[in-house]
Write a protein that binds this DNA or RNA. Structure first.
Lengths: 125, 125
DNA sequence: CTCTTACATGTGTGTTTTACACTTAGTGCG
DNA sequence: CGCACTAAGTGTAAAACACACATGTAAGAG
């Protein structure tokens, strides 16, 4: 096995567990973009505030942004006029806001499930 | 595309999102086995209480149980003497309890992250 | 007795999601 | 210039998961 699993990393003789919500980068991006439009690299730096990870894989981030655009959840355009390398500026759409709302709902349910799990865990200690 | 994504299902014209914790079946199994030893099919029926899903894929469940055994997190033996088809009875080990503890910890962190996400989401409505 | 259903454990294989490695290009600085 | 930082990507493999199918035991219906 070249790589260990992501959610359970070997580290100094024991397993390190990181309980992560599937596809969490997606709602995180949508939330950041709801606050204000931004370009990919900017999002890359602000994502860890939400995901709790050191950094998000940038390759996947750019692919995800393009996928979101194809689904009509965000729109983008090349940001002319600003200095430095060409940037693509992303903004959330109405559909994106709707999906974010559904994510928030799903995350609340997830919170409830996990809360029940933890209570049941504490009971049997 | 034969199958849609699991965490975002198309349903009646909109996407249905199910925010799921990665590999959550693993701590769920460990918790059930900490409460009492059980065989696979039994776990299969009791898992939805914890996961919130209708059912867990049984193929993957049996593979997961064997993987957990290879890692020393559970032990099993054929349950002789009980009627019906042969059952393999699984029990949690000390290492399994340790990993479950780490999962509980990780899940609490996940709760905090999600809580922060939801608060930030509510702020900007 | 035969058929069907439920119990019980699995294998095979494809899809989706994520990780890791690498490329290209603009700009400022010592 | 060489180097670091910004910015946007591609290629590819592994991990996680879904779906379909196989095999055998036992209990009950007709």
């Amino acid at each position: 096995m070249r790589h260990g699993p992501r959610s359970r990393r070997h580290h100094g003789g024991h397993w390190r567990v990181f309980a992560r919500v599937e596809r969490f980068t997606e709602p995180a991006l949508l939330l950041l973009l709801r606050e204000r439009p931004a370009h990919g690299y900017d999002l890359l730096e602000r994502l860890p505030e939400l995901t709790g990870e050191q950094r998000v894989e940038m390759g996947n981030l750019y692919r995800l942004l393009r996928a979101l655009e194809q689904e009509g959840l965000v729109v983008s355009e090349w940001d002319e006029g600003s200095p430095g390398p060409a940037k693509r500026r992303y903004a959330i759409t109405a559909q994106g806001r709707l999906l974010l709302e559904q994510w928030a709902d799903a995350l609340r349910h997830s919170q409830d499930r996990t809360e029940r799990f933890l209570e049941r865990y504490e009971e049997g200690r």
